[in-house]
Design a protein around this nucleic acid. Structure first.
Lengths: 165, 165
DNA sequence: ATAAGTATGTTGTAAATGCAACATGTTTTT
DNA sequence: AAAAACATGTTGCATTTACAACATACTTAT
């Protein structure tokens, strides 16, 4: 086989490669379905919080007294969006933002209210079973394996992507 | 162990479960990093199309003369968003929308222009190598396995989620 | 001591999203 | 034949997004 033919084949292969065949598009599509299920569930349940607000409650619950920027880092959201989600949650009285000092700097620490705690666990009780139905299709090993792959993928992304939080 | 204690433990476990520990949050986070890498790459390259527009070109390329609704189904986007992305691509003259008849109904078939084809492959040539760097961290087996798991997950979601396309 | 840099939070903006509602036709039911 | 349902595409709207730019206030460099 000549070099020319090889190069032609390579070129052909390259131009026939599709983004939609990649693992990254699989991840994108899967997240889209998962997100839509969340949206539809929260809507059907008349949840007082959106899926993203629920996420904030979830992380706040497991990280009491965290300040906004540290919360943003955990959420992998920028400070602007984190602040807006918190503003909405505070307006609904599911959290309070308490001004405090950390490293000699003013920060706003997030405190879950009783009502916020209640909403978090109410939503969990209704939403978890639905997602559990999906998880039933997989073995514990499969889930563990996939979580590991995705974590390694994120770690690789972190070296390339500029996160400004 | 009494039933009461068991129930107490179960309740405790339930309330200690976190959404952020779930596989679905892993998928969400991973997609977020992947999306951000795409955004930053396209921006750095001064790409004439956004990542979502690139996706439309990718699917149009591999499905010539597809109509808007069928394209929407492949993209798993609703008709409204698909139409808006196409409107933007047509304005930039990367596609044309040709009115045609299918099943005795008027449809708009999507045709990639020469310029659109060029942009698609230019962007591919610049973006694929970056994502390939990430893929290098995984064996072919791992990628195949993960794609399979995610596909099964989507198939399960499809039975639960209402897709109105 | 002054300047430059950093930390924290806010406001503005453009893109993409899903859903609802609409317009306009064609089928199917009744 | 009239009514209901469906197919296709569009417009409007509220949510979420990332990024840029800003306001304060503190730290570090010069």
């Amino acid at each position: 086989m000549t070099e020319e033919v090889k190069a032609e084949e390579l070129k052909s292969k390259l131009s026939n490669r599709l983004y939609t065949d990649s693992l990254y598009y699989d991840v994108k599509l899967t997240e889209k379905f998962s997100k839509m299920l969340g949206l539809q569930l929260f809507s059907k349940l008349n949840s007082p919080v959106s899926p993203e607000e629920f996420l904030v409650l979830d992380v706040t619950y497991s990280n009491p007294d965290i300040c906004q920027r540290d919360l943003a880092k955990l959420l992998v959201k920028d400070r602007a969006n984190t602040g807006r989600l918190l503003e909405s949650l505070e307006k609904k009285e599911f959290i309070k933002r308490v001004v405090d000092v950390k490293n000699n700097r003013l920060v706003k620490k997030i405190v879950l209210t009783e009502e916020g705690d209640k909403v978090l666990h109410d939503v969990m009780a209704k939403v978890f079973p639905v997602f559990d139905k999906v998880s039933e299709k997989f073995t514990d090993e499969e889930i563990k394996f996939t979580k590991d792959i995705l974590k390694r993928m994120r770690d690789t992304f972190k070296d390339i992507v500029e996160l400004q939080i």
